[in-house]
Design a protein around this nucleic acid. Structure first.
Lengths: 331, 331
DNA sequence: CTGAAAGCGCTTACAG
DNA sequence: CTGAAAGCGCTTACAG
């Protein structure tokens, strides 16, 4: 059995109250008793029981994070930002891989709530009404990353998807491309699906270019869907000279498909991605893409979550295009 | 304030003991009181406080995981396996990104211990003596993944690095390659560094091929070091026709370097990787590599950790080569 | 400066 | 079948 506070109290010949004050850096003891107690603590290898502490303090110093796809580069970069920031502030983080599954999400929300965590960060996932209801009930601070809420006014951190998508498309147009395809997320996805499609379309319209449904394909942000969409595009819209993919993973899928079909990037076809995960840097050729400050968004999320002093609202983070080698200028 | 067990007891007109028995599925109450209590619970939205429970039960239903590089594909695949398995068994997982930093590792170990978690999984990282000392002190079950312990007899799950590396090299030899370079981890790394170098060397020796120090380069398992090592290899050992990289990330780095230098893979140069993360599949060309069952190792780790009934020892998982398009046969 | 005591929200013998 | 009471390991008024 590990020693408890009363063990060290007994050994030191003082009360548990005094020991408690000492380990919590409060006042109310002489330097001498302090030293004595510290010695005993050292000697016995005493470590306070955080569970008992949590019960009385009503603070567990741990937060929970919900992620829809734990193993993607996007999620893990976000998670790293969150974890690092939390650790700095002396918090632990519990991860919850929802796998975009509503049942699991509710389960996780319940568990986290029972474990009395101090806050929750929800990432990437569209908040169904049920989620919002259970969130509303549990009275725990929540911050959203890469997503927003519809009914509740939960603070969020994200990039302006519409704007970013608009700019990506304009970038391609600026390079002389007129027939531009898109590898999009699902059009029912109100987060990273629809807004990005709309940004793309608007940029086309504003530049007097035609929009063709043939040039838009729908994936799920993952690699394989990127391959599949590229294949589709090559068939249905062979005239395109550039494509905008709504995630780097899909862009890399497009790259693989092009490679297989003997289509040279960027000579025959230009590709721009979205996210700027490490995949973009590692791609062949290195991928030009829309940079989202993912790691920073993670860090900021925990700061917002834990910072009770000022209730800032939501934050729209800046994005920008990072130029690498997958887009070429055409005349 | 959320309702407590005594709130529902009062409302139901029974004692907390009875409520406790009911929510824990024990016996000792009539169907009628059960139903009544359940109704009240529903009505009040009562959820048991896991912290209070943990204090008396001495079980928190949470485990901790130490990872040296949270954002790599290898770590996140492992983590996904761990999380999924834990969730199935009704456990939560706290992540700790050690960043290969000894100080952080000790800090994390202390925090986890104070938070009374039920077990710890340590991944990928060589266990310094200090770690083993503090692990020994804390009397918490530990399982190792992709690493081993030197003093303590902590169960581990890994692949036989030496064997796997030997086979990867023999595979290349079988394809007709005689001048084979290696992009290795650090030679001071006793886990994934040295053993893989030795496997490589032994395979060469057993096939009467010469070992040349010029053909061995040392990276850190990450992408950029792979690029750098490939560049070095191209300079110091231009005669090589194949290279064995000790991680997929480094292999992809090698691919990028080759691409930049106009060296065609696999026509001019064959490359085999190690790990079989998703990066291998996504590479151009798709990377032939040594498969480690990473996700499964994660799952298995938590099963071992939580399964107190039988103390199995350590487990050496099977590995195999998955052939894709980055190695060609030469005559 | 210091300690006795109550309390955090549960569970579990023990007694009836 | 059911409840009073003790206890898990802490912290915090309160009193001295």
């Amino acid at each position: 059995m590990r020693p408890t506070i009363s063990d060290v109290a007994k050994q030191s010949g003082v009360s548990t109250a005094t020991v408690s004050r000492i380990i919590n850096g409060q006042s109310g003891y002489t330097a001498k008793t302090r030293q004595k107690v510290l010695e005993i603590i050292q000697e016995m290898g005493y470590k306070p029981n955080a569970i008992a502490r949590g019960l009385v303090n009503k603070r567990t110093n741990t937060i929970g994070v919900l992620l829809p796809s734990l193993s993607s580069r996007l999620s893990s970069a976000l998670l790293k930002g969150i974890e690092n920031s939390a650790h700095q502030l002396d918090y632990s983080v519990i991860i919850c891989d929802t796998e975009s599954d509503g049942k699991r999400t509710i389960e996780y929300l319940d568990v986290l709530s029972e474990k009395q965590i101090d806050g929750i960060i929800i990432t990437s996932e569209w908040l169904k009404d049920v989620y919002e209801e259970t969130i509303a009930k549990m009275k725990i601070p929540v911050v959203l990353v890469l997503t927003t809420s519809s009914h509740l006014q939960i603070p969020y951190i994200k990039v302006d998807d519409y704007q970013a998508s608009y700019q990506a498309t304009e970038y391609l147009i600026g390079k002389g491309h007129k027939e531009i395809g898109m590898i999009s997320g699902s059009k029912t996805d109100k987060l990273a699906g629809l807004p990005r499609i709309e940004g793309y379309k608007q940029a086309l319209t504003d530049n007097s270019l035609t929009i063709s449904e043939n040039r838009i394909t729908y994936g799920d942000f993952a690699y394989r869907s990127g391959m599949r969409c590229m294949e589709e595009l090559l068939k249905k819209a062979p005239e395109i000279t550039a494509v905008f993919a709504a995630s780097d993973e899909m862009a890399v899928g497009a790259l693989s498909c092009a490679y297989k079909k003997g289509v040279k990037v960027p000579d025959d076809l230009s590709i721009i991605g979205y996210d700027d995960t490490q995949e973009a840097e590692m791609a062949i050729p290195p991928l030009t893409t829309v940079h989202q400050p993912i790691y920073d968004m993670g860090k900021m999320a925990v700061e917002m979550l834990l910072n009770t002093k000022e209730t800032v609202g939501s934050i729209l983070m800046p994005h920008h295009i990072v130029e690498r080698d997958s887009v070429r200028k055409i005349e």
